[in-house]
Design a binder for these strands. Structure first.
Length: 211
DNA sequence: GACCAGGTCCTTG
DNA sequence: CAAGGACATGGT
């Protein structure tokens, strides 16, 4: 089953750690990270940075501001991230959920991670990856993020498991430490971007980690 | 011009 | 459940 996959993933984790060492990835204020998590859906991060900059310029880069902002002003600011009609709605949905359920981001700080996750998944436009990104990078929780790059990089090693199971395996092997979760996910994305193309793993060392 | 990007939702078989 | 389309701009 996932026995041999678990071993391979453990090996992958230590390989990437040695390959990159420590990297600073996705820092920022909680509001900004949460919004970025939605904006980056199916979109390059560089475009998200432009959008966040534009939102700041308009004073719209906070959960508070989003709840009261005119939807078309949000759309104007985030157009460069694509899907801007749906993403503007998703930002509104997230902001409304936070204000209605917790009052504010501060109201989320003492809530258990699983409760927060369930709530986020009930927000229209927030799926597992976005929820986990918000939890891990926005709220410093130990909820591991599995994305397309993660799926691709493990495929290079002949690991067939899908996202749900992968998240499970990573969380089983990693120490329950937010810093570690951030690092490992960042390593995966950086490596996959560089070496694992859509078609196949080119110049990818991972095949040699295969068993 | 074709193809893809750190997803999610909805509809079909 | 798996597969396919819609959502849309910007880079290679």
């Amino acid at each position: 089953m996932s026995g041999s996959s678990s071993i391979k993933i453990k090996r992958l984790i230590s390989f990437l750690s040695g390959w990159y060492g420590e990297i600073e990835w996705w820092p920022g204020a909680t509001d900004e990270v949460m919004m970025g998590a939605i904006l980056t859906q199916q979109t390059r991060w560089e475009n998200v940075e432009y959008a966040l900059k534009d939102l700041k310029k308009r004073g719209l880069c906070s959960i508070d501001a989003i709840t009261s902002a005119d939807i078309t002003r949000i759309e104007e600011a985030i157009r460069c991230t694509g899907f801007y009609h749906v993403k503007a709605k998703r930002l509104k949905s997230l902001a409304n959920h936070i204000e209605n359920t917790y009052g504010s981001i501060d109201g989320m700080l003492d809530v258990p991670t699983e409760h927060l996750r369930t709530g986020l998944l009930n927000v229209s436009g927030i799926g597992e990856e976005t929820a986990d990104s918000i939890l891990c990078y926005g709220l410093s929780r130990t909820s591991f993020v599995v994305d397309a790059y993660t799926e691709r990089i493990v495929q290079c090693m002949g690991i067939p498991e899908k996202r749900r199971e992968l998240k499970h395996i990573f969380e089983e092997w990693l120490p329950k430490d937010n810093y570690v979760y951030r690092q490992v996910h960042a390593h995966i994305v950086e490596y996959a971007k560089e070496f694992c193309t859509k078609k196949r793993c080119s110049d990818c060392v991972l095949v040699s980690l295969n068993v």
